[in-house]
Amino acid sequence: MNRHSILRVVAKFMIPYIMLFALYVQFHGDFGPGGGFQAGVIFAVGFILYALIFGIENGRKVLPAGVNRILLAGGVLLYAGVGVAGLLLEGNYLDYFVLAHDPVHGQHLGILLVELGVGITVASTMIALFYVFSGQDVRR
């Protein structure tokens, strides 16, 4: 891929915007279309674009597979943990009203954290899939 300088320049230009757009979709999902699922996919696509253009080895340096695996579990745990936090604060499981003094604020906080958990899980699952499929050796 070293010879394709046009690809590299265009990708360098695009990737920060893709990542920024993913974060926008993640945190603006309350107000417009978007949310954790979409943001996770877009973030993963930006990362995969980087790995395709600059080489998978460089991609692995940015986000090692082990760290990715921890994130994979961490997203699910964050989601489940929000539920447990609701339990500890004397509410029901996944009950967001108790997370803050004002029920509506609690809902906001709960949705934000839960969407973050979803986003992390989806993004790291997609990146893990990409790593695994591209890490195969091609026999014959």
């Binding site: 699922f37 996770g40 996919v41 899939l129 195969q136």
Partner: peptide
């Protein structure tokens, strides 16, 4: 459907892994 799409791609990937 929103969740089903993302779940669908994850399970498709599982199927592709089985094919490999």
């Amino acid at each position: 459907i929103l969740t089903a799409i993302v779940v669908g791609v994850a399970t498709t990937a599982l199927g592709l892994a089985l094919i490999v």
